[in-house]
């Protein structure tokens, strides 16, 4: 499932306008930004980290950075949603790189304690998520951002180009190189993750 980066009703103020109001002490803007952005930051962190407590820490940390930068925010230079997405991605990458273990394979994940149907599928899904997150953490930042925006957020190449401040051709190159690097980082894990015979 993908979620548009700027999914909100057109008659509502955009995030930059809300952030400017927050910087002038508008409590309603604080609430609106919290409700609009925290779920996205948390969902992104969960997808990369797979741990509720860690994802909550990252989301709270990223939002705190947003509150602190609000008085100095330069409207028009960057989208708030893209800035936050990048902060969350970098915070998650730092945590993934500090983790002692490499990517998880299915047979390395603990046996499910839930005997209900679907437990094995959930285990497989978690192994895939963890393997992909660990591989993404090995990519250079711009390749990682291009791949994540394209596949997790459903952004088009022109949208990614605008958000990263590069040409569409550069986005195509970043995405292609990013996926080749992912394939290299995930080498030997296709079968364990259920993608071969």
């Amino acid at each position: 499932m993908t979620m548009p980066l700027d999914a909100h009703a057109t008659d509502e103020p955009d995030e930059a306008a809300l952030l400017a109001r927050y910087a002038r002490g508008d409590a309603a803007a604080a609430r609106a930004l919290t409700l609009r952005l925290t779920p996205r930051a948390y969902a992104q962190a969960m997808r990369l980290l797979g741990d509720r407590a860690e994802a909550e820490d990252v989301a709270q940390d990223a939002m705190m950075r947003l509150w602190k930068i609000a008085p100095d925010w330069r409207a028009g230079e960057a989208k708030v949603t893209t800035w936050l997405y990048r902060v969350v991605a970098n915070l998650c990458t730092d945590r993934l790189r500090r983790r002692p273990r490499g990517p998880l394979a299915l047979d390395e994940v603990a046996e499910p304690t839930d005997p209900a149907p679907g437990a094995e599928e959930r285990l497989q899904a978690e192994a895939r998520r963890a393997a992909l997150a660990a591989a993404l953490a090995t990519l250079p930042e711009r390749q990682r951002m291009a791949v994540m925006l394209r596949h997790f957020e459903g952004a088009t190449n022109p949208e990614i180009a605008e958000r990263l401040g590069v040409s569409v051709e550069a986005v195509e190159s970043l995405t292609a190189r990013g996926k080749r690097a992912l394939a290299a980082a995930l080498k030997g894990q296709a079968a364990a993750l259920g993608y071969e015979g």
């Binding site: 927050y22 919290t34 409700l35 925290t38 948390y42 969902a43 969960m46 989301a59 895939r128």
Partner: peptide, 25 residues
Amino acid sequence: LLDDVSGAAPADPSGDLMARVLADA
């Protein structure tokens, strides 16, 4: 793999996280 992982339902934040973020704000 990217399609499968991105197709997973997004996780919802807890009420406690929302309250903490708003308190920080």
